[in-house]
Computed example of a mutant assay.
Amino acid sequence: MQEHIRQLFSENIQTMIATGESLAGPLENAACVIVNNLISGGKVICCGEGATSALANHFAQLLLDQFETERPTLPALALLPHNHSLQHCHQQDYLARQIKALGQSNDVLLVISLTGAEPSLIKAVEAALTNDMKVIALTVDTSGELSGLLNQQDVELKVPVHRPARIFECYTFLLHSLCELIDMTLFPQQGDL
């Protein structure tokens, strides 16, 4: 069992190295998009489906509260996950409806996808683009339709891994890295504390 444990750590390290090599530029771009939109008075709207909605909530909370150092709050929210008790809300557009109601052209949608084919996330991205919002998408190599919706102003953070556990680890690390880059850019003096 200990050998298997060492293999898990090794797999994680190799995955993180590969992700770092492929996503350094896009991660910087994503941080710049968020910072520029926050400076212009926008907010970050986060969403995922199923388990990735927890990551969306986590990221929004880190922006609202703080990452590692105390700083002013940043405007962010996570969309409500699908609630089967909402009788009039169509199953696949529950996120899109929230974006239509809350999203504005100076906002950023941060969408977290495990497959790139989740209908609710595709409709969310379509709604964001209709509202002239920028999109940052955390995706995997197999991402199809969702990736195809993105344009040049959007940023795709496509992790080079397929195992769900490694995907979640990468996504969590990417979100924490984004927080650090945002804080470092907006509040450089906070890092000196």
Rank of each mutant, 00 (worst) to 15 (best):
D65G: 10
H82W: 03
E21A: 10
I136Y: 02
A24S: 15
M133F: 03
R97D: 01
P164F: 01
L110M: 13
N131R: 15
V111T: 13
P72D: 10
L63I: 08
I122S: 03
S143F: 02
L178H: 07
L95H: 05
G103V: 06
G116C: 09
S143K: 01
P188L: 09
L193P: 00
Q7L: 09
A165G: 04
K100G: 10
P81M: 02
L62T: 07
V140G: 11
D107H: 12
L38V: 08
V140A: 11
A18D: 12
E145W: 00
L114Q: 13
T52K: 06
M1E: 08
Q61T: 14
C32P: 00
V140R: 10
V111E: 02
L64C: 13
D183Q: 13
L181H: 13
L178F: 09
V35T: 11
V155I: 14
G25F: 07
H162D: 12
Q152I: 09
E49F: 07
T52L: 03
Q7T: 06
P119L: 04
L62E: 15
S10Q: 12
T172I: 14
L95E: 01
A30S: 15
N83F: 03
T185R: 15
A128F: 06
D154Q: 07
L149Q: 11
S177L: 13
V161G: 00
P188G: 11
L38N: 05
S53W: 02
L146P: 03
L62W: 03
Q98R: 03
A18N: 10
Q7A: 08
N106M: 11
N36Q: 14
P72Y: 08
I167A: 04
E156K: 13
A30N: 09
Y94R: 01
Q104H: 15
T73F: 06
R6Y: 04
E49N: 15
T185S: 15
F59Q: 05
L80D: 02
P26C: 10
D132T: 05
A165C: 02
T185C: 10
Q61K: 07
A76I: 04
L110E: 03
L23E: 04
I45A: 05
R6G: 00
F173P: 00
S120E: 04
V33T: 14
L8I: 07
L8Q: 07
E11V: 00
